[in-house]
Design a binder for these strands. Sequence first.
DNA 1: ATTTTATGTCAGTCATGTTGACTTATCTAT
DNA 2: ATAGATAAGTCAACATGACTGACATAAAAT
Lengths: 159, 159
Amino acid sequence: MTDIKSGTNPLFLRTDEIMQAIELLFFAYRDFTGEPDELLAEYSFGRAHHRVIHFVGRHPGITVSELLLILRITKQSLSRVLGQLIREGFIRQTPGPVDRRQRLLKLTTKGQELDDKLFDVQRQRIVRAYKESGAEAVAGFRSVLLNMMEENDRKRFSR
Amino acid sequence: MTDIKSGTNPLFLRTDEIMQAIELLFFAYRDFTGEPDELLAEYSFGRAHHRVIHFVGRHPGITVSELLLILRITKQSLSRVLGQLIREGFIRQTPGPVDRRQRLLKLTTKGQELDDKLFDVQRQRIVRAYKESGAEAVAGFRSVLLNMMEENDRKRFSR
DNA sequence: ATTTTATGTCAGTCATGTTGACTTATCTAT
DNA sequence: ATAGATAAGTCAACATGACTGACATAAAAT
């Protein structure tokens, strides 16, 4: 409301622009997750498995609690998908060397292969979008998404 | 793989950058949907209801089939949430004036009020991100997301 | 020795997606 | 005029991935 009343409201903050942002996120995210979902279905896995594989792949040796903090789900929810991934040999647990209560999570070779495949389909879509938009647009994309997320998680992206 | 081998691989196409893009989308989308989800919970609604309210609000008089094409869900899935929204007085149906098989969907005043509230929480987050990033970054954000979605839906965003 | 923490598990529920089969009303084309 | 196609709705069964709550075990911290 403040913006609408103000006479100095920049073009990119008009109601119509904000509405478009909402839909851009909806359509882009829908298609961004579409291809991985198809691949995962071949393994009878879902998006939840993807997220676990992704973050374990990115952070080998991550603990269950750390994973829970990132994913913001309950341990019961995580337990189901993580249990499947472990039983089917995609993820391996090893006791923490310092704190033996911890279970450090790592991808097995099989898990690494699936991670690679999943990364590859997403990489192709992103590379295409990045190439078609150019380096400057990519910087803008990064900046807006960073500022859109909770401050707490922005640290992950500092370079 | 092609990119990795190539000597002319721009910085913004490196594996690490692509990986960050994947996580940027995950965290930003998670937080972008978090606040609306809380608001919806007060009405015992979920994200599915939000999407219906949003697209009916944006396209008054939209038909059920058009909505199905946008949302890419089955009519049985839509039926459940749409039925609730109609029974609880958030959406009104009127027979199509030309084709009387169609049910044209519109928000009621009550539906409009919820739509406004939902828009407002999302608007605040986007305005903040946009302001902190600047007009040029916003253009880049738009461009990358547009190129990330299926070509078919890009028409919606032409200006 | 006691308490806290990290993890796991059992049980039940909910939201939202799916497939498949079938109905009704209405429009379109022969 | 009638036959087929289309728009919408419904019933039933099922899967996934969230949730809450209660409880168990092992190891660390106090």
